[in-house]
Amino acid sequence: MNPETDTINEALRLDGNAVAGDLQMLMGFDVTLLQAQCRHCRKDGVFASLIAYVRGPGIVLRCPTCEGLVLQIVKTPTSVIVNLEGMARSEIDLTNR
């Protein structure tokens, strides 16, 4: 592990808020309040608090607790590929708060 690269990665990371526009356009609803469970550590959390890495060729969302891979999004010129493998369960509260 390179400590300098680690620090840069830490400073560059965003959160679920930053990818909400892409997902809202795709799914037609706001994902930030989605309650999601990490398949790796089984911890529940709100989508907005997932750690987001957006500077690569795709978007990677990781669990803030165990850093396990929760979701990947890759945009191609003609499609969007979403991998939800790391999400054990998700629930949206329709009362909107």
């Binding site: 679920g16 808020n17 526009g21 930030t32 709100v46 989508f47 907005a48």
Partner: peptide, 14 residues
């Protein structure tokens, strides 16, 4: 532009 986006980091009247 597109928006408005996000329902988590918001201060609601409630």
């Amino acid at each position: 532009v597109r928006g408005p986006i996000g329902g988590y980091f918001v201060w609601r009247d409630a």
